[in-house]
Design a protein around this nucleic acid. Structure first.
Lengths: 155, 155
DNA sequence: ATTTTAAATGAAAATAGTTTTAATGTAATG
DNA sequence: CATTACATTAAAACTATTTTCATTTAAAAT
């Protein structure tokens, strides 16, 4: 039982929830697969290796709890399924996703220049921003190169 | 047959596709419901009033064509269904959505300050951005006010 | 330790959104 | 006006997720 298990157990207890082997296995899977944007089914497949009797429903139910606790964040990568990433600290959500439209790879950028824009939105629209989601679509390094090479062949 | 029907017909013909009553009705519905972010089913319900025999599958198929033509844009408002908005012109996609987490209303902001960020991404990540999606979550004007009022009652 | 009990689980059914299939209809071409 | 190729409808299939319900289990009470 590691350090974050203990935090998780306390967090569960404080909500009148139980610390079960399944919940522990799911959180550990998230921690062992950081920056991977796992879908519930991918998490299911990983957890099943060591806990073959677990059901998908438990994955979905646990992810809701983890999200509610702020330990995990649900994102949308336009592939029709939910995707989850570990929410390590408060500043952590200040990163955006770069989605390659050719190969589908997802990478991340760390900076966040939206504070000024959010202030402007509060002033001009009277809308108080508490969170945001930013996705960039385009071509990743590798695909840019393969496009360049393809063009040269035509020369 | 209005002006945009003619544009649509030409655009379809140039792709070897046919200009049918159903496709026309769907595009017209999108034009008559601008800034509404309709879901396929909502479009279906509207189109059905005048074309009761239309099927849902045609809505989905036509939206794919319209999206491919750039006449329409698919967005995600985190409600589990696809949402579509009319893509009037090229600069039109330079707006973002404000999603109220209390009442679920969706409004829009026009400005777009992402160009500088996209240049930075190209330089630092070698990722060429061709499009982006930005969503702001928070509280709309009305909900901010009702929160304020609720607080006063407790005083 | 053992009992109790409320919460959690797994399997399966249900649901929601979307896509595919297959038969039929229809526009355009020769 | 016959042909052919695309489009349509309705229904079935599919995918992701949620709910149901009988059973199990963590942890509080004994």
């Amino acid at each position: 039982m590691n350090n974050s298990d203990i935090v998780f157990e306390q967090e569960l207890k404080s909500r009148g929830l139980r610390f079960t082997a399944q919940r522990r296995a799911i959180l550990n899977t998230m921690m062992e697969n950081q920056r991977k944007h796992l879908s519930p089914e991918e998490i299911y497949d990983i957890v099943k290796v060591n806990s073959p009797d677990i059901g998908v429903a438990t994955i979905y139910r646990t992810l809701l709890i983890l999200e509610d606790m702020g330990l995990v964040r649900k994102i949308n990568l336009d592939d029709g399924k939910g995707r989850y990433e570990l929410n390590k600290n408060q500043e952590d959500h200040h990163h955006h996703h770069l989605i390659c439209e050719k190969c589908g790879s997802v990478s991340e950028v760390k900076y966040d220049l939206l504070e000024q824009l959010e202030e402007q939105i509060l002033k001009e629209n009277e809308f108080l921003v508490t969170n945001h989601s930013v996705k960039f679509y385009g071509y990743c390094k590798d695909c840019l190169e393969s496009i360049k090479n393809a063009k040269c062949e035509q020369c």
